[in-house]
Design a protein around this nucleic acid. Structure first.
Lengths: 192, 192
DNA sequence: AAAACAACCTACCTCCTAGTAGGTTTGCAA
DNA sequence: TTGCAAACCTACTAGGAGGTAGGTTGTTTT
């Protein structure tokens, strides 16, 4: 077995649980049952719950940062790139999951300072990556030069998060798709 | 004192707490301290926590239903109406609060069946009211006749929820405003 | 072989949770 | 003035939370 096997498995399960039920509804007990070790043993890897969540966010920034970066490097239109990002959120709904940044943002007030800062940072990081699609549109002159690309990216992230949250409740993929299509069609003019 | 005074005060405090920290981080103890009665007494008014949340959602549907209805009855353009709705969400951020439907939707998986159904219903109700602004735009022919007004309204609600959630974390009213402006300008063509 | 360490374990702690049982006060109605 | 019910109270329960102390493996390192 590779080193850090259990640690990664703990993070995997924690991520899964948090995305489904949230931080406050996920316990070290649930985690222990799923991973197959005792509750106390988790404290060996992550002394405090907060340590685990910070580690999880760091890992997510890396993993998703790479996923998004790959999308941005594709030879595709901005519109296509936004749709590829939306697909990731759509898959979340199918699994009954919500973007972890969204989960943490909603439970923000009940989290420790370290997690709060990590969450705020993740929001900015994600928006900055999404922004690249809008910058591309400006470069291609399908958007005006003075277009606020960060606000648009931040808004797109917000929109995906919100529509994922609501659609998951009603298991409503159709409405998710329709709303996403309307949004992307509105926000980005047709490329020539 | 009017009848149901304590009951309403409990609902007021519960709503405030839930909008700030979420259902799972709000306890009958917190509630008792704020209202000034003993924890056990709350059970007299709301035997189970779930009873309270369902009652709260019912009340919110009524109150916000009326607020939104009034906006829709104003002699204003669709764009102006959407901005008035956005203002309500902006005020939430200033108070450190998130739309209660959003809070419940995120914690959806850890809620009882009765609350889940009430939340799903509230999402639909809210979307239906927002839809009126888009229907008006279709009537005024600023949107095509085959425009999916429900999906647009559902998307607008989603967007506001998402941008409220993210902006609250960073206390970022500016980004909220910028994103909202871009969104509304994109989704609704200029009225003649 | 001995020491050291990582990775677990059992057993326990304190604190907080929703919820219950049953008694007390208050005010209205017969 | 008695009766009754609404609206509170004190005191309690069982269960679960995060976290700690200290012991037991099994694998390296020296």
């Amino acid at each position: 077995m590779t080193k850090n096997d259990t640690k990664n498995e703990l993070l995997d399960c924690a991520q899964d649980l948090i995305q489904r039920v949230g931080v406050n509804a996920m316990s070290y007990n649930d985690l222990a049952n799923q991973v197959g070790i005792r509750k106390a043993s988790i404290h060996y890897h992550f002394p405090k719950k907060e340590d685990m969540i910070v580690a999880l966010l760091t890992r997510c920034n890396l993993v998703y940062g790479q996923v998004y970066e790959e999308i941005m490097c594709l030879n595709r239109t901005p519109k296509e790139k936004l749709h590829l990002i939306a697909d990731i959120f759509e898959n979340g709904i199918r699994d009954g999951k919500v973007c972890i940044i969204g989960m943490l943002s909603v439970e923000f007030a009940s989290l420790g300072a370290a997690v709060q800062q990590a969450a705020g940072n993740a929001i900015n990081l994600t928006s900055k990556i999404y922004e690249k699609a809008f910058i591309q549109a400006v470069d291609e002159k399908t958007l005006p030069a003075d277009f606020d690309t960060y606000a648009a990216a931040y808004g797109f992230f917000s929109f995906l998060l919100g529509v994922q949250i609501l659609s998951r409740c009603r298991n409503d993929i159709d409405n998710f798709k329709n709303s996403v299509n309307i949004y992307i069609e509105s926000i980005l003019p047709d490329s020539k």
